[in-house]
């Protein structure tokens, strides 16, 4: 399988979907520049530059989806979904339920998410917990190029609506677009295995709601998604040096959530550490704890999350976002406090 970058993988999946299905259209601010390959190949009728009008744009995409198109609508940063939330929360998410399953909106909302490059808390949020809490919305967060392509294909082909979040640290295209390409010497902690990787030709769809076990281990389960998966893999290596075998589960999808995978791994390891770049409360990390409790899994539990508004200064930001140091500290605490299954 050829190796490719995360952004190229997304571009390729999008091109494949547009080739196979003439109903797929791309709508968004600056997309004729940002997705110029698709614009040149598929023309002006399928790649439309939008005014800075997120609310109307998302509503238009919903209407088009309801009437037979398969729009991929881009909202720049997921933070800006705030401007258009009504269309997603009260309309797109409600259609299927309100019609008793008679009408669906095959719509993909594509947005960049995540921090680690110093843009502060109005451009670097994750928000997948907030969005995934709404019945009727699917939310996916790929951590590798293959998953980025595969989840996008599945999202476009599915019944929708799906929020497809691409972490900016994985996407060279985004980092370049935001100015990274024009200055040297600025380094971000980009996980190599997330930014580049093998992708099938053609890319293989990845079904929503199926987690991937990235690493085996019986002492501790690290549960994460997006960039967090790579931080977990790094921590798992360090733990191995200490004689601790940590499994790493990549959820890939926040809604639907792979409950079975979480429960099985929780039972097997007895210790679950959730690494979630999203906010602590009311989101994914708490949901994982609830899933374990609901299924009677008696496992120790801890979480490493973003506990406050992401600050601008790089040093402060690095401390606020989940990092390997914090994961190691939380893992050590879990191992000490819940010594049960080990040894």
């Amino acid at each position: 399988m050829p190796e490719t970058s995360f952004s190229e993988a997304v571009d390729r999946a999008l091109a494949l979907a547009m080739t196979r299905d003439p109903r797929v259209v791309v709508l968004g601010e600056d997309v004729r520049l940002q997705r110029r390959g698709a614009f040149v190949r598929f023309g002006a009728s399928r790649v439309l530059d939008a005014p800075i009008s997120e609310s109307a744009l998302l509503g238009t995409a919903l209407g088009a989806a309801m009437a037979g198109l398969r729009p991929v609508v881009e909202i720049y940063f997921v933070d800006f979904i705030g401007v258009a939330l009504d269309q997603l929360l009260n309309h797109a998410a409600k259609l299927e339920a309100f019609t008793g399953g008679r009408w669906q909106a095959p719509l993909v909302v594509r947005a960049a998410c995540g921090g680690g490059y110093g843009d502060a808390g109005q451009h670097q949020q994750s928000l997948w917990g907030l969005l995934a809490g709404v019945p009727g919305l699917s939310v996916v967060v790929p951590s590798t190029p293959a998953d980025a392509a595969g989840l996008l294909l599945a999202a476009i082909d599915g019944p929708g609506p799906v929020v497809f979040l691409e972490h900016k640290l994985l996407s060279q295209q985004w980092l370049d677009y935001l100015g990274g390409a024009s200055r040297e010497g600025v380094q971000f902690d980009v996980p190599a295995a997330g930014a580049r990787g093998e992708v099938g030709e053609p890319p293989v769809p990845v079904p929503l709601g199926v987690a991937a076990l990235r690493r085996q281990g019986g002492d501790l389960a690290l549960v994460s998604l997006g960039v967090g998966v790579h931080r977990c893999l790094e921590a798992a290596e360090l733990l191995e040096d200490e004689g601790v075998w940590a499994a790493v589960l990549d959820l890939r999808s926040v809604a639907p959530l792979d409950v079975q995978a979480i429960v099985e791994l929780g039972r097997r390891t007895g210790r679950v550490l959730v690494v979630d770049e999203d906010y602590t409360r009311g989101g994914l990390s708490g949901e994982v704890a609830a899933v374990l409790a609901e299924h009677g899994v008696r496992s120790a539990y801890a979480r490493v999350t973003t506990e406050e508004t992401i600050p601008y200064a790089r040093a402060l930001e690095d401390a606020v976002l989940p990092n390997v140091e914090r994961i190691m500290a939380a893992a050590h605490a879990l191992l000490v406090n819940a010594p049960g299954k080990r040894g």
């Binding site: 080739t19 004729r32 520049l33 110029r36 614009f39 040149v40 190949r41 598929f42 023309g43 002006a44 009728s45 399928r46 790649v47």
Partner: peptide, 14 residues
């Protein structure tokens, strides 16, 4: 993909 004329017009747009 789109007919060549449309593609050229996209390039022209960029």
């Amino acid at each position: 993909g789109a007919p060549l004329a449309q593609r050229l017009s996209a390039v022209k747009g960029i």
